[in-house]
Design a protein around this nucleic acid. Structure first.
Lengths: 213, 213
DNA sequence: TGACACATACCAACTGGTCGGTATGCTTTC
DNA sequence: GAAAGCATACCGACCAGTTGGTATGTGTCA
């Protein structure tokens, strides 16, 4: 169980480091990655955020509404942590950047699964039929990641060419699929080694596509 | 919501087609694939199976115990439906068999996601931290599938060779990862096309591995 | 007559959400 | 500058319904 904030929130109306709303979103992301969306109660999210349900329902119309907002936040987190902050994002050569991206994802595959697996992948797995707003928000996040990645892939294709019949978007979604599937295997096995191995296959495949055309 | 049995079960003690226990397992698999494990109540499983909770708890000590048994049943279903019954399982050439396998998985990617996605992959995604027995049962099922698949892959390697540094087991788990990841993308997108595309990448990769060594 | 496979009634805890209230900050008016 | 009114952020109690599970009863069969 993720450690929860047992102490009271800071005094009201004084903006804390991260407001209640932001802390609720962060708590939701952490708890859903740990145990899934349905098993995560509103009360539990509130405890982790250090507020009560009154605050929760002041900011969010429903548990579902929080989930949708959290999916949007997850897109922002990915944009910052994967596509902006790492040094490899500034490699000039797009193919090197793509391989750097995959190496980066590889290096993330360490420690407990809830620390490296995907919030929206986890949530849509169980909620896709129960809530169309949640499904659509997760899909939008996955799409945003893939389209962002496809930019680098297209640049690499423009310079190096790629195996016949492969598009940038197609390969970007395939990379997404491999990562999400690797996460499931790591969760089942309790060991990220199995996920790293699959991402090594992914890297090998990408290299093959760009060097044998 | 999957259509449930509104009418009463057949008269007591008359063995129906599939006993209560088997119907409960089938109902659990169907409902969990539709909406995940935590959102699936014992009552809901009973309604789908046409029995009451008395029957449920006569056969299973707990909801968790049913989940573990259902994971075992899923392994058996995969063994029959994927590794035994299809015609391609009787192709003599192991590489052709492997590619037949992938084509078969490709052909399954049609219709609503709950009809082609993986029961144990879905369940472990959200339950891996909440129940170690469920996690282990799902892992065993995923392992059984991969090790079964690795048999064909090893035979193909023996005849044709494979790219350096690739093992049969490693490739088998990678195939598992791609399939599970493709399922998530299909659930999010609401369209299996995106999953088929990823499995096409998988097939291309497997062909590359066996023909460029 | 006892074992088995159920059905029914019930239980305590939990759930998502509501509600009346409190504390504080901001704006307007005097 | 003070007071009043309003808005905001949040608290904690409460609600109806649901939940996993338990206890007991019933019918059938060997």
């Amino acid at each position: 169980m993720p450690p929860s904030r047992a102490t009271k929130a800071p005094p009201r109306q004084v903006p804390a480091a991260g407001s209640a709303r932001e802390r609720l979103i962060a708590a939701a992301i952490a708890t859903v990655r740990y145990k899934g969306f349905s098993a995560t109660s509103v009360d539990e999210i509130c405890q982790a955020a250090g507020v009560t349900k009154g605050a929760f329902f002041h900011h969010f119309a429903s548990k579902e509404a929080l989930a949708v907002e959290a999916a949007g936040a997850w897109t922002e987190i990915a944009e910052q942590r994967i596509f902006t902050q790492p040094d490899w994002t500034r490699i000039p050569d797009p193919l090197e950047r793509l391989l750097g991206h995959i190496d980066f994802r590889l290096s993330m595959l360490d420690g407990p699964a809830e620390d490296f697996t995907c919030f929206v992948g986890t949530m849509v797995q169980e909620s896709y039929n129960s809530s169309d707003p949640i499904r659509a928000a997760c899909d939008a996040s996955l799409h945003a990641y893939a389209l962002r990645l496809a930019e680098d892939i297209q640049q690499a294709i423009d310079i190096y060419g790629i195996a016949s019949g492969v598009s940038a978007v197609s390969l970007a979604f395939h990379i997404q699929a491999v990562l999400q599937g690797a996460f499931i295997l790591a969760k089942a096995n309790g060991n990220p080694v199995i996920a790293r191995d699959s991402v090594m296959h992914l890297k090998r495949y990408v290299v093959m596509l760009f060097t044998q055309n």
